[in-house]
């Protein structure tokens, strides 16, 4: 069994937020929802200021507070390290959201927008492949409507039901096909890495061994699967600048 981890190289990150966009397109998240979120920070007083960036996907904690508090087991941890939500079981109590110290959960406040449902097509149709070259158009990925993993639960994509909690899935639908998450694939400077950390010779294990790293809010004992390399954790001095519109 693999044990997936993500490495964020803060020395490389340039804060372009392409990963945020890739995530939105891949997972069809509603307006104002950013499963992958990139902080742009400013520190110090003018004129001695510095700026830094910090991508924040779900941390997929090994000791996840959200999994512990979920009253129905809709939020669960898989052996491959992914923390997922069963959208068909979630009752929408939002306990996971208040328990999470990282603020990665997003609730479906509105009715999901099914305006694109009519566009659902069989993208494996040869006629269509001749036209698309095998690329699945971004507006509605059919992979989100099938169940994933040996446990067979509806866990990928966004906007299935109203009143249900959603968050970053590490792109479970891609990982199960042997692909890396959309954000990792998109990053133009290779600041995001993804792989199996259980295999000691995998590139990600070697990378983690060879670099000094930290986890976000390590002191809480949540043991995140997202490892940060280079840079420094945000301090209380960090002020967020250039926020995208995030409130619905």
């Amino acid at each position: 069994m693999a044990r997936y981890k993500m490495v964020v190289d803060l020395d490389r990150c340039q804060g372009c937020r392409a990963c945020m966009e890739a995530c939105k397109v891949e997972n069809n998240t509603p307006a104002g929802v950013f499963w992958m979120y990139v902080f742009r920070f400013e520190q110090g007083e003018f004129p001695d200021t510095s700026i830094s960036f910090l991508p924040r996907p779900c941390q997929h904690c090994n000791n996840a507070p959200c999994v512990k508090v979920c009253p129905t087991g809709a939020r669960y941890k898989r052996e491959d390290g992914l923390v997922l939500t069963d959208f068909e079981r979630c009752i929408g109590c939002r306990y996971c959201e208040v328990a999470c110290p990282y603020g990665v959960n997003y609730f479906n406040w509105r009715k999901p927008d099914h305006a694109f449902d009519d566009y659902k097509m069989d993208f494996s149709d040869p006629d269509l492949v001749a036209f698309t070259g095998g690329v699945v158009p971004p507006y509605r990925n059919p992979d989100h409507d099938v169940k994933h993993g040996p446990e067979g639960r509806l866990t990928s994509g966004s906007g299935h039901f109203k009143g249900v909690m959603e968050k970053c899935t590490f792109c479970v639908h891609r990982v199960e096909k042997g692909l890396v998450p959309a954000c990792v694939d998109t990053c133009p400077v290779g600041a995001l890495r993804f792989g199996d950390a259980e295999d000691e010779n995998s590139p990600i294990s070697v990378f983690i061994r060879e670099h000094e790293s930290f986890q976000l809010l390590e002191e809480l004992g949540t043991d995140p699967s997202v490892i940060y390399v280079g840079g420094a954790p945000p301090s209380t001095e960090s002020r967020e600048i250039e926020r995208p519109m995030t409130r619905v």
Partner: peptide, 14 residues
């Protein structure tokens, strides 16, 4: 009921 663990899928089902 659900076993007292949170490391596997079984830990989410009674």
């Amino acid at each position: 009921a659900t076993p007292w663990c949170n490391t596997a899928v079984e830990c989410s089902n009674p």
